[in-house]
Write a protein that binds this DNA or RNA. Structure first.
Lengths: 181, 181
DNA sequence: TTCCGACCGTACGATCCGTACTATACGGTC
DNA sequence: GACCGTATAGTACGGATCGTACGGTCGGAA
C-alpha cells in the first residue's frame, strides 16, 4: 500500500480532511473548497496545493484515477490508509501554536507610521469579511450545523469582524490624540 | 557595492531593522532581540535566521567583520545600501495581508473536539504572556517610549491577553451548554 | 581537570514558494 | 464556423525555507 514514506504537513491533513468531506475530487475542487473554509487559518499557495494530492497518492494515502472524457482530470479519494492517518491526527489533542505573520507590524517595528498601514488593512478585512459572508449565505455548508467546515467559516467571519473593530478602536484613539501604545 | 542580487523577504527586513536598532551585532544577538520583540508576528526558524546576515552581506546590504578574539564570531552592520533598502521599504504603506496559521483550527475543521485543543492553547498563551511581560519589565526597551520594538512588544502582550480572554469566553459558553458556533 | 549546561552555530536533504507559462472549455459574436 | 475573451485547470523551475540532527566553544562547579 504505502510506497514511499513522506512527512505529512498541515497541508497534507487539509487535503485529507477536504477529501473526507467532499468525497472523490479533483485538485481544483479541493482548492475551491479550501478557499471557502480553512484557507483563512491555513494558507497554501496554489502550486503547493496542486502538488499535494499526487504526493499523497504516491505514498498510498489517496487513490488516483483519471476522467475518461473532457480534460481527463485526475480524481483523488481517501484510501483506508489515508482515512486512518487523518483519524489518528484528529484524535490527538496536540497542535502547533498559533502563528501570526504580519508584515504591517514588522514595518511598524522598523519604524513605520501605523496609521496608513491600518487604513489599508481595514479595507482588506472588510473585503474578506464580505467574501466570507457571501460563502456563508450561498454554500451548501450552512452556519447552523456544527461540522468542521461550518465552524471554520464562522470562525473566519468572527476573526475579520473582530479585526475591523480593533482597528477602528485604534484609529479612533489615534485621531483623538491618544497614542494607544 | 552590490555583488549578487537577491530577493529581500520579510525576514531580510527584520534583520535590517534589528541592525538599525542595535548597531553592529552577531547573528546570535539579532536572534535574541528578535525573540524579545517581533518574533510574535514574524517567526523565523533559527537555521533560516542564522543564514540571513551572510546572504545579505553577500549582496552588499551588510558589512561583515570577524571578532579578533574568543569565538571569532562574525559581526554585521548596515551598509548605506542596506539602510537605503530598509528606509524605502518602511516608507511604502503596502504590506502583505495578515496571515494566521492555526493547526488547532485545522483540526477542528477536520472534525476534532475544540475543548481539549483550547485548554492546551490557553496554557500556551498564558506562558507566552508571562514571558513577554518579563521582557517588558527587564529590557532596555521600555513600554513607555514609542519606538518600533516597544510598540511591537506591547502589541504582542495585547495579543496574548486578548487570546486568553477569547478562549475563556468560548470555554465558559461551552460549559454553560451553549454551542458558540 | 573534567564534566556539564548554556551558548553559538552549520550540514543537509526535503519541502515550499513565487513567477511565469501552458492549455482546455465555453459562451458570445462577427 | 472562425475568432476571441474569460474562467477553468493546471505545470515547470530554480531559489528560499524548513526541520532534524549534529558540532564546536565557553565558563563554572565538582
Amino acid at each position: 500500500m504505502e510506497r514511499k514514506p513522506i512527512r505529512l504537513s498541515g497541508t497534507s491533513y487539509a487535503v485529507l480532511a477536504l477529501l473526507s468531506h467532499l468525497g472523490e475530487s479533483t485538485p481544483y475542487d479541493l482548492k475551491q473548497a479550501l478557499v471557502r473554509s480553512i484557507e483563512n487559518f491555513w494558507q497554501v499557495p496554489h502550486t503547493t496545493f496542486y502538488a499535494e494530492p499526487a504526493r499523497l497518492a504516491a505514498a498510498g494515502y489517496l487513490s488516483e484515477r483519471q476522467e475518461q472524457h473532457g480534460r481527463r482530470r485526475k480524481l483523488y479519494a481517501l484510501t483506508d490508509q489515508g482515512r486512518a492517518a487523518l483519524d489518528e491526527w484528529v484524535a490527538s489533542p496536540v497542535a502547533a501554536p498559533q502563528e501570526v505573520r504580519d508584515e504591517a507590524i514588522l514595518k511598524v517595528f522598523a519604524g513605520a507610521d501605523p496609521a496608513p498601514l491600518l487604513h489599508r488593512r481595514r479595507e482588506w478585512h472588510a473585503t474578506k469579511l464580505a467574501e466570507l459572508e457571501g460563502y456563508a449565505q450561498h454554500d451548501e455548508w450552512r452556519l447552523t450545523d456544527h461540522t468542521g467546515p461550518t465552524r471554520t467559516l464562522a470562525t473566519g467571519i468572527a476573526y475579520h469582524r473582530f479585526s475591523l473593530s480593533a482597528i477602528d478602536a485604534y484609529l479612533a484613539a489615534l485621531e483623538a490624540g491618544d497614542q494607544p501604545w
